[in-house]
Amino acid sequence: MSKGLIIGLVIAALVVFWGIGVRNGMATGNQEVAASWANVETAYQRRADLIPNLVKTVQGVANFEKGTLTDVINARASATQIKLDATDLSPENIQKYQAAQSQLSGSLSRLMAVAESYPQLKATENFSELQSQLEGTENRIKEERDRFNTTVKGFNNKIVTFPNSLVASFSGFTVKGYFQADAGASKAPAVDFGGAK
């Protein structure tokens, strides 16, 4: 074997080892993103689980405005339909998911605003606790979304920079989506109970 061949083989081996290392790093990052995505979904699920209870409580009040209530029920139905697999967190999918969820946020905050004008509802302990639970879930959603974004940022940075981007394209890792700040909801927890916060 010639000296040149040996040097060439050594360099090739080094490159392969480097590639494997980088790929493993990306795979780990991918798992981290998947884990924090699971937390995001849990937080949203928690909110969806609260709604039947909320609806029941509100329905118990005589002549409660029906429109806002059906809005919430419909928005919940369409929001829970969209389930994203952790392997498919492309920017478009995240955007779709977020759109469905923020529609639910919007109809929920309208419902809570309407509920403010029913003193017999506001006075019940049950409703006040539901309010706080709802507020808590909104805070948890915000928290998990922030963490998800941070994890995704780390992952994306890893795969878009050169020369890692070469390894990423070989092994099929693509950029993942972020949650955007909700339009018109810069004061993040969208449900505001006037002083309850």
Partner: peptide
Amino acid sequence: DFGGGGAGGD
């Protein structure tokens, strides 16, 4: 670590 639980009031 904290995940957003709790409640508030005045």
